[in-house]
Amino acid sequence: MNENFQKDIDFGLSATNKTLPSKYFYDKIGDALFVEIMNMPEYYLTSAEFDIFKNQHQQLIKALKLEKNDFFELVELGAGDGTKTKQLLKALDDQGYNFKYAPVDISENALEQLKASINNELPTVKIDPKQGDYFNVLGDFKTSSHPIVVLFLGSNIGNFNDSKAKEFIQKLDHNLKTGDKILLGVDLIKPKSIVLPAYDDAQGITKRFNLNLLTRINNELDANFDINTFEHKPEYNEEEGIARSFLVSTKDQNIAIKSLDKTFTFKKGEKIHMETSRKYNDQILNTILEGSFLKISDRLTDSQHLFADYILEKH
């Protein structure tokens, strides 16, 4: 049993305002559901960033100031299925850049699938997958003499609140050398009519994705969640630019988790906070970067200006 999983679930459900960590969405079923989410018509984030990688990969290479003869390591945090990244990898490989791709993910299953697809589609690209915590992996690169480019795409940083995002950026900063760069993908602030459907799709895939975490707790921690007694409810505040997803109990109920030897009480209408998705603009990002040695050096957006990939450089 994963002790961290056990502790985190206990901590989140014991809080006054219950919460579950979104990083645990990604088991084998969760990975597959998230691929479905990325292909939904409502989920513009993936297609918008894919637009940048497909149609502006040359601009990305230029913005990252990559030199063909200087070996560098492309480290992707939370690599997932690598659909977008492959566009950049192919361009770099075709043009003879000297690099190695190191995808990092908490999901061993996702890494195995990614390595197989890279070997199949881009057989000349050197790939070195690393399973585990982002910063443990990045710490290994800190003493290297060659440049590092970190990819953190998909607006994954938006899953943190601002204080956690600031902490994350400072940890990144600490683990990079002067001259290293980050390609940071962020969702831009936009109207509710565009944002909310991305987290409440007509097919109910996002609902299943959220409820799957309760099923995972049932299976791995011997709990008795009845997923039919929880509703998926997303919210978006356009002024602050933050989307939040909740599961809401449809009745008063008690949930026993045997591995914790605990029972958790839910009132009808009580929420479990599942995920946060912060939307960005230049001002918000610069506030997050304060106190670090990372500075914005460039910014590319998709054709509809829904999403941005920022280039950050350590000074």
Rank of each mutant, 00 (worst) to 15 (best):
S303C: 02
D10I: 00
T143N: 14
L214T: 04
G30D: 04
M1R: 01
D105Q: 12
A165V: 03
G139K: 15
L285W: 10
L74N: 08
T250C: 05
T16D: 10
A48S: 15
F50N: 11
G204D: 06
I217F: 05
K166P: 00
G154H: 05
Q56I: 07
K86T: 03
F225Q: 10
N2L: 04
K171H: 09
K130T: 04
H305Q: 13
L172T: 02
G185W: 04
P147T: 06
I272H: 01
E3K: 15
S155P: 09
D51R: 04
D27G: 06
F225H: 11
T85A: 07
M40C: 07
Y310S: 07
H146P: 01
E49N: 13
Q203G: 00
A116Y: 08
S245K: 00
F152P: 09
N212G: 05
V137M: 03
F141E: 11
T250K: 14
N228S: 13
A79M: 01
F11C: 06
S292M: 07
Q113F: 00
K192I: 12
E73M: 10
K130L: 10
L300D: 05
D93E: 15
I182N: 11
G80H: 03
Y24Q: 00
E73D: 12
H232N: 05
K23A: 01
V195T: 13
K271T: 05
V125S: 04
N210P: 07
T265R: 12
N228P: 01
Y134K: 03
G12W: 09
F152A: 13
L92E: 06
D27I: 05
K23T: 02
T19P: 00
F5S: 13
D8K: 12
A102N: 11
L306H: 12
T263V: 14
T287G: 07
P103S: 08
A15S: 15
K295H: 08
G132Q: 09
T16Q: 13
L260E: 10
R208F: 00
N219Q: 14
K181R: 15
K262C: 03
F307Q: 09
A256F: 11
K23G: 04
T206G: 08
V137H: 07
D226T: 11
D162W: 00
K267F: 04
D140C: 01
K164F: 01
L20I: 01
S245M: 15
D27K: 08
D187I: 10
E36D: 15
D93L: 02
T19K: 08
V149G: 13
V195W: 12
